[in-house]
Nucleic acid binder design. Structure first.
Length: 573
RNA sequence: GGGGGAUUAGCUCAGCUGGAUAGAGCAUCCGCCUUCUAAGCGGAGGGUCACAGGUUCAAAUCCUGUAUCCCCUACCA
């Protein structure tokens, strides 16, 4: 149990004994400043107000009542009724000895919908957020013993594929090889678009192919499959590069729901949820009505008969509830789709596709903006390819690694450049609040100084280096911890907050709080490293061992924390 | 028109259910490598938390209004 939880329980007990109503909580937290001790309880003031009594006196009564015998070195009351607690060093050391809580295993099924790129084009930087935030949550929830089911809802179906198939057929008819024609998906898409816009005959062919494809025409399906395979291979390469845990097994693209769509619309009609309006089939939702009482419309079938992504999403959600037995479904999708998600969730419940107990969660994220604060575009008006960003990141990291003039082998340089470059890109994104719009800045995303992944990785390598120099294996080192120096204490206290943070992330799905935690942890470690020598002369052996143990636990927390973010550590850099 | 989000240091951002003197990084300035990796450490300057009211022991945080910006708002996904 974490220190915070322990203290909270103790204070609750004391407050209950004093007949303070249970809605008055202790309001425990780590102290905002060192002079206020290690932890503070701010609940006395609120409780005093509730009981119409003097807050300082009540704080004193709580302090007299609470049992902190083996925990607190000293306590005091400050200001209007803050209770400040300074912990015993031995108690901190004791807590640390017990290590991290073992996560409890349970059988909750959590479906996570993330990444979901459009296969018609290459992945661009805008796909980064969904992919890596979703992946981080998948890792965190798995770490906590949940049964995580990843679903990559790839966009492999719809109008634009008619155009792409027509283009592929055109190029193949000229004797080109499919692999060659599709070697650059972006170029291929642009050629296709050009033909579509300039050549009415081509455009007609393209439109006809959409219909043929959706009705199962063998030739169209064959061409489509060739295109899709190339596109998926491209995405798989990006995932591998990004160290993201998505494999082809997790792909459940839009096309797999194609055969369910007609049924969905019929079913919605039978349940009197969908009605015809201007030739289209529409679900009108009073739950999402505006001020005037006009219901929110969601089109599930176009007037021409085609289905839309709302229809597909309904089918997907039904599948996740019924076939995957989900207890929670998490969507990591752009905030611009908030209304769409609300509509899908509301309709699914009304149509009884999902049980009331199923938790449907849209964890939205903000839009990527340019440095001018407007939606992001490159100078040429396009988007930055994700592949290009990653290559650049790795190249910059490699240049830096070589500058540091260490005696690393070529293999080591390659490995380090990869981990540092990719880590920096991921961390730059993960460390920002999920829901806010964010400014895409090439340089800050590729920065290796300050609050960045390399800083955390560097802290890890410094620890590893100590153990290497001492000739001790980091993994199986164990010693008693003696807390003495303030840097030791601060580091130890931070280490003990690891589980609190993980649980918080699992609940609110904000990985940036884990980033903040790991940065603070690293920062405290760096300070400890500078102030508390270990292998240097004059350090007594017990102190050295204790400090090595603090190092080992810091390394473990860093490694695990970064792993949950999908960022790798290394022994040298 | 309706709805959602945002506004904190020169720039990019934290700030948990209201808590004590609002914090980081980058940039700027000053120190620190012949002993565990300087991708680092120590320190300095830099703020009317958009604005105006309100709620209270206490407001960046909650409420109301105003301004500015972004997004969504029926047949793309």
């Amino acid at each position: 149990m974490s220190i915070k939880n322990t203290l909270n329980t103790r204070f609750k007990t004391a407050m209950k004994a004093l007949n303070i109503p249970s809605e008055c909580t202790p309001l425990l937290n780590s102290s905002s400043k060192p002079q206020f001790g290690d932890y503070q309880a701010n609940g006395a003031m609120g409780a005093a107000k509730h009981l119409k009594t003097n807050p300082r006196e009540l704080a004193q009564k709580i302090l007299d009542q609470v049992d902190l015998a083996e925990i607190a070195e000293k306590t005091d009351i400050a200001g209007p009724g803050f209770i400040n607690i300074t912990l015993k060093n031995d108690y901190i050391a004791d807590c640390l000895k017990n290590g991290l809580d073992k996560p409890s295993v349970n059988t909750e099924n959590i479906v996570i919908d993330y990444s979901g790129p459009n296969l018609a084009k290459e992945m661009h930087v805008g796909h980064l957020r969904s992919t890596i935030i979703g992946d981080a949550l998948a890792r965190v929830l798995e770490y906590l013993g949940k049964n995580v089911i990843r679903q990559n809802h790839m966009g492999d179906w719809g109008t634009q594929f008619g155009m792409l198939i027509a283009e592929l057929e055109l190029q193949l008819s000229k004797g080109d090889q499919a692999e060659l024609a599709l070697s650059d998906l972006e170029v291929f898409y642009q050629q296709s678009k050009k033909h579509f816009d300039a050549d009415p005959e081509f455009a007609d062919t393209a439109r006809a192919y959409v219909v043929k494809l959706q009705s199962g025409d063998a030739n169209c399906l064959k061409l489509w499959k060739q295109f899709i395979d190339v596109s998926i291979a491209h995405n798989s390469e990006i995932y591998k590069q990004l160290n993201v845990g998505l494999t082809t097994d997790h792909i459940k693209p839009e096309s797999t729901y194609n055969s369910d769509l007609e049924w969905i619309v019929k079913d919605l009609e039978n349940k009197h949820l969908a009605a015809e309006s201007d030739g289209a089939k529409v679900v009108f939702l009073d739950e999402l009505a505006d001020k005037n009482g006009d219901p929110s419309p969601m089109i599930v079938q176009k007037s021409g008969g085609g289905f839309l992504y709302a229809t597909t999403d309904l089918a997907a959600l039904k599948y996740r509830a019924e076939k995957l037995n989900a207890d929670r479904v998490l969507y990591f999708i752009d905030a611009r789709q908030s209304l769409h998600m609300k509509q899908v969730f509301t309709t699914s419940r009304k149509a009884n596709y999902v049980a009331d107990t199923l938790s449907l969660e849209h964890h939205a994220f903000g839009t990527m903006m340019g440095s001018d604060g407007k939606p992001f575009k490159t100078r040429t008006g396009g988007t930055v390819k994700l592949a290009d960003l990653l290559v650049e990141a790795i190249e910059r990291a490699e240049t830096l690694v070589r500058q540091k003039n260490t005696d690393l082998s070529e293999e080591e340089i390659t490995e380090i450049a990869q981990k540092v470059g990719i880590g920096a890109v991921k961390y730059a994104d993960l460390s920002k609040t999920r829901t806010n719009d964010y400014i895409f800045d090439w340089d800050s995303m590729l920065s290796f100084e300050g609050n960045t992944a390399p800083y955390l990785q560097y802290a890890y390598t410094r620890i590893y280096s100590i153990f290497r120099k001492a000739g001790i294996a980091l993994e199986d080192f164990s010693a008693d911890i003696i807390i003495d120096a303030p840097q030791e204490k601060q580091l130890a206290l931070k280490l003990l907050q690891f589980n609190d943070v993980i649980h918080q992330v699992a609940e609110d799905c904000y990985p940036h709080s884990l980033c903040n935690y790991l940065y603070e942890l690293s920062s405290l470690f760096m300070s400890f490293y500078e102030h508390c020598p270990i292998l240097k002369t004059g350090v007594n052996p017990e102190t050295a061992k204790s400090r090595l143990q603090l190092c080992a636990q810091s390394a473990s927390a860093l490694q695990k924390g970064l792993d949950l973010l999908g960022i790798e550590v290394m022994e040298k850099m």
